[in-house]
Amino acid sequence: MDPDRLATLLSDLDNDRRNGTDVGERLCDTCVEVLDVTGAGIMLMSDGEHRGTLGVSNGVMTVVEDLQFTLGEGPCIDAYASDHPILEPDLGAPVTNRWPAFSGPAVRAGVRAVFGFPLRTGTVNLGALDVYLDHPGDLRTDQVSDAVVMAGVISRTVLALQADAAPGELPPLLDATVHHRAVVHQASGMVSAQLDIDVADALVRIRAHAYTSNRPVNDVAHDIVDRRLRLD
């Protein structure tokens, strides 16, 4: 990326952050524009778990993020876990199908090529940036290197947001990111108490139920919390 463009982009983002603009969506739109891709999404993680979506550029990306949260597999998860870019230029006919549950629904949603980049800050990974194309194809070398730059820009922005919060607290934008999945964590606590299993296993059960019944994981979680559904 041209250094002047990067400098402008960083100063615009700093202004947005100070004005309290939703920088999550702004970052995704910037990625789409800079990287010349169909869509982009940003996922936050901690302790190896998907904690929430910081932003998406369009509705297809919402589906992609929801699939990854539900299934615990996909390009973001792999980019985070491997600490390397994940490149899948033909999701509909991959050489090796690395995401058996994710691929089908993602292709049906309109994703034909998908790429994940870790949000790395020194020794800690904060999550991943996902971008997709609505047609099969590789990213060019300059797109890959710009995506790595954008992942750095996102990490920097996330940490700048965190710097404004009191220690132990989340800044409002990141709190809202996690809040979207609050019901799922409540449901995990309930199922854990019902079945006398630990919360991580309870989350696996809830995800499995959402997958097999083909429902959004948040809907299943709401049913559990409202006592309309009991897993066994």
């Binding site: 904060l126 132990g168 989340l170 990141l174």
Partner: peptide, 23 residues
Amino acid sequence: LSEQLQYALNSRVVIEQAKGALA
């Protein structure tokens, strides 16, 4: 800041889980 972020994310999650378990 990364450590603080991870801690705050985990705290937020564990509080929701505890709400569910107690409920």
